[in-house]
């Protein structure tokens, strides 16, 4: 059985201008020990999705529909108390603005020991510090830097400390939301490798959220492409990249400059991302889609399975889209 199964999840925000459809009808499942990457432009709902899984949506956010089955139980049915137990102990999160997640007035190792102690009453302070030492070794922070304050760390080291904190309670699922966005390429590479190794070593499942399709391609087993609140393509990494089905995925791939291969012309996606208070009718991508037909504007897009582990949400993909 899958560790996490999300069914028909719809999330929205009440804003001054009206109801914003942030995530609509998203379903996916994640096996134990596997990683799933969500890719999409800013505002496509990927961060909302991560926050919803932690049940940490802002006050104006509502989960309108759907189920989030984690380890057999529905996260939406859990009480706040039970959710507090699950957070960090079973599901941990590496936040987007990780640089600000550390409290500047406490030493780094104290903060992580604190996290261990609050969630595990059975151990004492000394044991907690020993665990922190182990964790720091795991994420590659030298022992002599443990007692530093956050401002003495570089961006990469702060990020490592945050990863150590996420691992502190040995969770079964980690949600990583843009964990390397503000970092330089070399440091980013190191951190990503670190995350992958740890994930493999401990068999932790991971949901990896990023706007950068190339990073997700390197890190995750499965890929989900999101556009305007909808999951539009879902499949194994190999399938999605060697055989992209949805026109949006194709457009995303051809708008990304690469180092290897032919230096072709980049094909940017025309237009702007749609307004999710009044989302477009029919397929949400229809007004930017090069292969859109009249029917795309009115008809609902449907899931088409292109291969056993690869499906796409497109009105005409089964037939002859965008070729």
């Amino acid at each position: 059985m899958a560790l996490l199964e999300v069914l028909n999840l719809s999330i929205g925000y009440h804003t001054q201008k009206g109801y914003l459809h942030a995530v609509e009808d998203v379903s996916f499942s994640l096996e134990e020990g596997k990683s799933l990457g969500f890719v999409g432009e800013s505002g496509c709902g990927k961060t909302t999705l991560g926050m919803a899984l932690m049940r940490l949506l802002p006050p104006n956010g509502v989960i309108r529909e759907g189920r989030m089955l984690f380890d057999g139980g529905d996260l939406l049915q859990k009480s706040d108390e039970e959710m507090r137990e699950i957070r960090w102990q079973k599901i941990a999160m590496i936040f987007q603005a990780a640089m600000n997640a550390l409290n500047p007035v406490h030493r780094v190792h104290e903060q992580i020991a604190e996290a261990i102690l609050t969630h595990n009453a059975s151990i004492d302070k000394k044991e907690a510090f020993e665990q922190v030492e182990e964790l720091f070794q795991l994420v590659g922070i030298p022992k002599d830097r443990m007692r530093d304050y956050p401002h003495q760390y570089s961006g990469g080291m702060k990020q490592r400390a945050i990863i150590a904190m996420a691992l502190a309670c040995k969770p079964r699922l980690i949600i990583a939301d843009e964990p390397t966005t503000a970092l330089d390429v070399i440091v980013q590479d190191q951190i990503l490798k670190e995350i992958m190794n740890l994930q493999k070593e401990f068999g932790i499942s991971m949901i990896f959220i990023s706007h950068d399709i190339s990073i997700v391609a390197d890190v995750c087993h499965d890929i989900g492409i999101m556009y305007a609140g909808k999951l539009v393509e879902h499949g194994s990494r190999e399938e999605v990249f060697s055989n992209p089905a949805h026109p949006y995925t194709k457009a995303l791939l051809s708008s990304y400059p690469t180092l290897t291969g032919e230096k072709g012309q980049l094909m940017p996606i025309p237009g702007e991302t749609p307004n999710l208070i009044h989302p477009p009718s029919g397929c949400r991508f229809h007004d930017r889609c090069p292969g859109a037909k009249a029917a795309c504007k009115t008809g609902e897009a449907v899931w088409v399975e292109t291969s056993p582990r690869h499906k796409t949400l497109c009105y005409q993909c089964g037939a002859d889209c965008g070729e």
């Binding site: 390429v185 590479d189 990503l192 190339s214 990073i215 391609a217 390197d218 690469t258 180092l259 290897t260």
Partner: peptide, 26 residues
């Protein structure tokens, strides 16, 4: 610079770039 990098730092930069899941082959 990109096809035939000479400096170890440039090479390190190229190594660090995501490879679209092809890291094994590059």
């Amino acid at each position: 610079v990109i096809q035939k990098p000479r400096h170890p730092y440039t090479k390190a930069l190229i190594d660090a770039l995501p490879k679209f899941g092809l890291s094994g082959k590059v």
